[in-house]
Design a protein around this nucleic acid. Structure first.
Lengths: 358, 358
DNA sequence: TTTAGCAATCTCTGAAGAAGAGTGCTAATC
DNA sequence: GATTAGCACTCTTCTTCAGAGATTGCTAAA
């Protein structure tokens, strides 16, 4: 961490605070007027020149004021910023809302609403990545016959998460000889189910997908069709990473931000946000880190995101974790959003452990 | 339908075709040069004046060319336009893609990908509204105990659709007197389930929601808790209209269209698109109509949509139907998009009846 | 009925200039 | 040595203006 003198710190902090509010280059005079009235503009100017030389500030052109660089923001976030705690009213609002999102509704609905709420409160993009079910441990697997050829698979994972999927066991049979009988009897299904549980319970979903073939080999194959079906279809049955697990809301908010006056740039960002895989990988890079993580502008791996900052925090359900975050232009109220996400993540962890998900 | 002379029809058609390509007012000279070389610009000009007087064309200012009004487009779509059929290559591409979307994946995934594909092919917004499960007829209801207090409800609807939901029967009991026993025994669950089916099967989901209270009254109440729970929770259990049933993709495409140079206007449209309820109601207005429906500019009920046109078509699974569509500026290639949606809807109906949904 | 011709209208572009904001440097001051 | 006042210089932005270009509407001729 580079050392800055107290004066430099004062100037940098004042400049950033003004810049966040005005979205324009900040002049020495503006700083003196608003924050450092005991100094003259000329003095502040000298400090600004130093800060520019060391890469904390940038000047769009001679005779313009200065703007913070990503490095400047980094220093601000790490060493200067005072977190603005949420008011108890805001906290109460969030808690009440979140509780209602989880009440009697499915997880998708809740996550979607949460990202909307973050977007609404921050006037930026709200993002939620649902927990990585892949890492959940299989607790119980059940097979329920639905009709002649379809079976409902219920997968219960530690932390009380349940996921259901219906599968078609029928193979395309072209012989249409009258009424066909049930492919797999209830009894056989029960037996198979028991065996599955013996062999697979206690493993993570990811592990199961990887090794199901080995683990189901050498079974007393009462129903070979069923087993080979499961092995073949493992990737779809034990798939928990559908693109629908990402929730991005509030695109409208950032469209009107001055940094997106350039439509081309806006379009690039939006295109990026529509590619769910990439956004997921962006968020996964933050996964597991403790507390609130701020990634500023060019610190982001993706070029489309380099005008933006990302503020994230992880939340937990039992041993699983997901990510909640916020995206906006690098010029943003870090001091507020850090608190917002800290509290949001805490709230989600809390409510998710109270209310089991569907 | 107003009558236009052959000359007027020719001019209107030529003008619209040029305008779609250039996005600018069209001059008399441009029309002669491109389409009606046997006429002089002055003649065309006279016709244009007539068309303007009758409301088919509009002039941004004196000494500018003319643009079609919504009325002009309406006449074009109804009477002038020649549908551009999809090439057999395009059809093959669509069929192959759609098939893969439905293969081993859930409906949400497929619908989402389909709207992406429409967006990609049209360079506009693609929209899919999943079938109105509400109107599906309940075929069978099953209750599967998951653990002490949770029950899995499986709802099978005609057309082979299945929807599952887990419910929490536990009432918040504050008395933490050691281990609590199972709230509802398997046997009672079976009995209740049978009764549910007797009373509710054959009704539409909507109907059930509306009248469950009456229908379950005067039952031999072996498990009053369960019954009252179902009655109380009917709105969440028999809820099939979650906002997640709408898929809007391709926002990036229209952002760069010249009609959205005005960011405010773009923001308003995007905001509208984010309000899923309103978009759903917009699409529901088209529901049930036969064939491809084109709604042009101010024909749309919502003000944010009045710069846009909507092209939709219904698709069917058994007795249920959903809507697939496309949104773009009124200046769009109707001739192509009508064919695109016609084929898409046909393809969806076809594939959905082959591949049962999950 | 169609067309040629032409004045009139409006937009668009670029140039030129004035106003304004802010800097960087120098020399004076504390 | 740090700070500041003063001032020339630079760059942006806004306005104005004129000229070019596009297109129309009208009139009169074909």
């Amino acid at each position: 961490m580079e050392q800055l003198s107290q004066r430099e710190r004062d100037v940098l902090q004042s400049l950033i605070q003004i810049h966040i509010a005005t979205a324009a280059p900040v002049s020495s005079r503006a700083i003196c007027k608003k924050y450092l009235s005991e100094l003259s503009p000329a003095t502040v100017r000298n400090t600004m020149m130093d800060l520019e030389e060391r890469g904390f500030l940038d000047q769009p052109h001679t005779s313009a004021g200065r703007e913070p660089t990503d490095k400047g923001y980094r220093y601000y976030v790490d060493s200067l910023m005072k977190k603005e705690a949420l008011s108890s009213e805001e906290k109460r609002l969030l808690r009440r809302r979140f509780r209602s999102y989880f009440k009697d509704r499915d997880a998708e609905y809740a996550f979607n609403e949460i990202s909307r709420t973050i977007a609404q409160l921050s006037h930026q993009l709200g993002v939620v990545l649902s927990p990585r079910f892949e890492e959940g441990i299989l607790q119980k697997l059940e097979l329920i016959p639905l009709n002649r050829s379809r079976v409902l698979v219920i997968i219960t994972v530690t932390s009380g998460l349940v996921k259901t999927i219906t599968v078609e066991i029928d193979r395309p049979s072209r012989s249409s000889t009258g009424r066909r009988k049930v492919l797999i009897s209830r009894k056989k299904l029960r037996e198979a189910c028991q065996l599955f549980n013996e062999r697979l319970a206690g493993l993570s979903i990811k592990e199961i997908r990887r090794s199901i073939q080995q683990r189901l080999r050498y079974s007393t194959q009462t129903t070979p069709e069923l087993f080979s079906f499961f092995i073949k279809q493992a990737n779809s049955i034990f798939r928990f990473d559908s693109p629908r697990d990402l929730f991005v809301e509030g695109r409208t908010n950032i469209m009107l931000q001055p940094e997106f006056r350039d439509r081309q740039r806006l379009a690039e960002l939006m295109e990026f946000l529509d590619e769910q895989d990439r956004v997921i990988s962006l968020l996964n890079q933050q996964a597991g880190k403790q507390g609130v993580v701020v990634t500023i502008g060019s610190e982001n791996a993706f070029s489309q995101m380099q005008v933006c900052s990302l503020v994230t925090s992880s939340y937990n359900i039992g041993d699983l974790s997901g990510t909640v975050g916020m995206i906006g232009p690098t010029r943003m109220r870090y001091s507020k959003y850090v608190s917002l996400l800290e509290y949001t993540a805490k709230l989600m962890s809390e409510l998710l452990s109270e209310t089991p998900l569907t």
